[in-house]
């Protein structure tokens, strides 16, 4: 097996909670808590979780768009987190990101040529060459070079997302982070973008981290999947085992909550409806973070945080993981 292209080790990102007249820091929200993930060359790693699980912070921390507090992000032998500003600029050529909101991620006052060409301008490419490269990349994402003179407001949501993808691809990155790239789009447009990403990956052999809340989309695009809950990875493994035989009760209940567009399957499903909401990340529960909503939590889950353990090809952080071919429903009926 080859070496990982990107190695995230024990990443911790905290946001201060400020209060009072002088905005004094009164505590911290652990948006990311000891997250370790390896990204293999040419693979797509899906990251799923509900709001507040830290998945967006993960994407931004890797690129230091928010500053992590500790940990390492190893790429090509150097640590992104300790790189100085010129080193970081060099690394950002290779690590790129596409944002969720196709309306907010493009500066409304700049024409597409300048938006897509900005990475080149920042890295000192001449104007003439910029033109040529922008035209080329626009074609690759399914737009026309003539569209470069137009402004973001003239494009639909799906087209804007193509522009965002073009901007991320123009420096030929080897790692692309996609932060909810299709969640703001209608289903029919979503499918166009997913196909585009698939084609880009096949052609350019890029490694991708695909962050999303939609489990069906993640299943469709990913080779491996990481499930996050309250700032931690609770289960990570290859797509087939994770979707077909989830080990963590959270993964199982998440999958069970996703409605399927098939009435017959829907009728025969036994759904586990989790109680309550995700606790505030400012006051996470003791022990296992998931225990307050977990249908199979026990005494030990309150006192002791489960460590990551490998079983049957996946890694899971649970004291009582589901066994091979065991479902959460059958565990509950036992």
């Amino acid at each position: 097996m080859s070496e990982p292209i990107l190695r995230i080790e024990n990443l911790v990102t905290k946001y201060p909670i400020r209060a009072g007249l002088l905005r004094r820091t009164v505590g911290h929200v652990h948006a990311l808590n000891n997250v370790s993930i390896d990204l293999m060359p040419k693979e797509t790693l899906g990251v799923v979780g509900e709001s507040g699980c830290g998945k967006t912070t993960l994407g931004r921390s890797i690129l230091r768009l928010v500053e992590p507090d500790s940990g390492r992000v190893m790429y090509g032998g150097s640590d992104v987190l300790t790189a100085n500003s010129s080193g970081l600029r060099g690394l950002r050529k290779d690590l790129q990101i596409v944002f969720q909101d196709p309306y907010a991620s493009l500066n409304p006052r700049l024409p597409i040529n300048e938006i897509v060409g900005e990475p080149l301008a920042v890295h000192g490419v001449t104007k003439a060459e910029r033109r040529a490269r922008v035209g080329e990349i626009l074609r690759e994402v399914g737009l026309l070079p003539e569209h470069g003179n137009r402004y973001p407001h003239e494009f639909s949501g799906g087209q804007r997302q193509r522009i965002g993808i073009a901007r991320a691809l123009i420096l030929n990155p080897s790692v692309l982070i996609l932060d909810e790239p299709v969640s703001a789009l209608d289903v029919s447009i979503q499918a166009q973008i997913l196909n585009l990403l698939r084609r880009i990956q096949l052609e350019k052999q890029i490694s991708m981290i695909f962050i999303a809340h939609d489990l069906s989309v993640v299943r469709h695009v990913s080779d491996r999947v990481a499930v996050m809950y309250l700032g931690r990875v609770v289960e990570i493994g290859d797509r087939t085992s994770l979707y077909e035989n989830p080990k963590h009760p959270y993964t199982a209940s998440l999958l069970s909550a996703v409605p399927l567009a098939d009435p017959v399957t829907e009728r025969s499903r036994k759904r586990i409806v989790l109680q309550g909401d995700v606790p505030s990340p400012a006051h996470p529960p003791s022990g296992c973070e998931f225990r307050t909503r977990c249908p199979i939590a026990q005494e030990r889950c309150v006192t002791e945080r489960p460590a990551m353990q490998s079983m049957e090809g996946v890694s899971v952080a649970c004291h009582f993981p589901l066994g091979r071919d065991e479902s959460l429903v059958s565990r509950l009926n036992r």
Binding site: S188, S216, R219, S222, L255, V258, L260
Partner: peptide
């Protein structure tokens, strides 16, 4: 156009 959980990924 829905990436279904029942479809082929």
């Amino acid at each position: 156009s829905i990436p279904s959980q029942l479809g082929v990924p």
